[in-house]
Amino acid sequence: MSTPLAILGIFGDAIDFIFNAREARTGGAEVGGLGEFASLTGKHLLVTVAAVGLASLVALPLGLYLGHKRRGGFLAVSVSNVGRAVPSLVLIALFIAFLGVGFANVALALALLAIPPILTNAYVGVTQVDRDVIDAAVGQGLTDGQVMRQIELPLALPLIFGGLRTSVVNVIATATIAPIAGVVTLGDPIISQSVYGDAGKLAAAIVVALLAVVAEVGLGAAQRAVTPAPLRGTPGATRRGRFFVKTAGKGLSTS
């Protein structure tokens, strides 16, 4: 362990673990190091993308359609409310109990977790589009499909991205328990602490946290990029502006 890191104590040791492989606590194997963390992170992201992709496939069209018809608001909102209350652990546990283990099952379980924010945000995004704008568009002879594609979808994009962002962050967090269901993600050093030791467990916790923060910030930037300029504003400068977008972006404005 290099000296500057040693000052940080166990956290320094954990950072060292990410970069340099060492012998497992239980002996006989090399653990840690960039190579292993790269592959664990890769698997973590793969299962995340699969889950969010799957969830988007279901939730986006449904949310856009319900929003367009201005129907099923109760469904969209209560799905998201109950979704928050179901502990992710229970969800994974139920999946193991009823369906079994493996990549597909884990991706499916995580997708269920990812659906509510995407669904709610797509729905709310579309319903927030100004009625007058749509009436004007219809008056100009746009068909239903054209209204959805050319008016509602672009205007709802910021909120849709907000929903995706929430889902991605949630799924990254929950994919940590995937190793108990046959998928070796960054949760492995946390769960198999007897092999990886304290340093490995902490190292994995740090990487998962970083991954989530990077996803949050990155998708936040993407959300800003797709937000029409007049709606952006600067943080804190106006009474609404970005702040309002962000609030809705997290799907937080219920009631």
Binding site: I10, A173, L202, A237
Partner: peptide, 29 residues
């Protein structure tokens, strides 16, 4: 004091983003 909003949102936003399982283990030591 409007200028407080941005830093508070950013800071609590980062806290909110850290996965709970990871945070428990980060706090244990």
């Amino acid at each position: 004091r409007r200028w407080l909003i941005a830093p508070v949102v950013q800071l609590t936003g980062i806290l909110y983003t850290i996965p709970s399982l990871a945070l428990f283990f980060l706090l244990l030591p």
